[in-house]
């Protein structure tokens, strides 16, 4: 277990240090997400009666678009001076490399989402400190990070990487977005139990599936 965990933590530490130095990923995700929130707020003019219906959609469209930004950057940074090749030349398992990159992206996305949640709460007028909502966000973001890391590794090797990533990412992540929207809707509305009983277990199943499948596919993808 430590053999897997040690390189994962080394990778995450390196990604955090690089992000701390450049600040390009978190800042761009944050600015982009804020813009989407503001645009939706003015475009839809959400009334208190519509919050339960519209807020989950707005939240997850914002988070999903922000995730594609994070994923686009994830492996581009590794390719700039051949860092990915250097990583693949080290005696570290491909699973550890995948999990390290996914964990880094997961943390960056969670950070941005944590900063955005109070903004959503203030603009759309709903309680953000809900256990079910926070759990939904954590579980769906894990799914985003796992699938996004895999497709980022694929897209970065293509010429039109910026277009390729969302084209690959959204069809596969759609079930997670649907489950996240439904669970969030139940959480914001008066039936958080529905979210807990039906949609959160579904999110957990998706995460477990992606956790098994994505590292395996990644190992195949990065072989030449």
């Amino acid at each position: 277990m430590m053999q897997l965990l040690r390189p994962v933590l080394i990778l995450v530490r390196k990604d955090i240090l690089l992000e701390w130095r450049s600040r390009d990923l978190v800042v761009s995700m944050l600015v982009f997400s804020l813009l989407i929130v503001v645009v939706f707020n003015f475009a839809l003019n959400v009334t208190p009666q519509q919050v339960t219906v519209l807020a989950p959609g707005i939240i997850w469209v914002t988070f999903a678009f922000a995730a594609t930004l994070a994923m686009n950057r994830s492996f581009v940074r590794e390719m700039e001076q051949g860092g990915l090749a250097g990583l693949l030349l080290s005696p570290v398992s491909r699973d550890a490399i995948f999990l390290g990159k996914a964990l880094g992206s997961f943390l960056f996305m969670l950070l941005v989402e944590a900063a955005l949640l109070p903004v959503f709460g203030a603009l759309l007028n709903f309680p953000v400190l809900s256990f079910t909502l926070v759990l939904t966000i954590v579980m769906a973001t894990l799914g985003f990070a796992l699938v996004g890391t895999l497709f980022s590794a694929i897209a970065v090797q293509t010429r039109s990487r910026e277009i390729m990533l969302p084209v690959l990412f959204f069809p596969v992540i759609l079930p997670v977005i649907i489950a996240a929207v439904e669970a969030s809707s139940a959480s914001i509305g008066s039936e958080p139990g529905v979210g807990l009983n039906r949609w959160l277990p579904l999110l957990a199943i998706f995460d477990a599936l992606f956790l098994v499948i994505c590292p395996w596919v990644f190992a195949v993808v990065v072989e030449e």
Partner: peptide
């Protein structure tokens, strides 16, 4: 391995 790329990160 020493290749054409350095395998290093610019911001480190």
């Amino acid at each position: 391995v020493v290749a054409h790329q350095t395998f290093l990160y610019d911001d480190l």
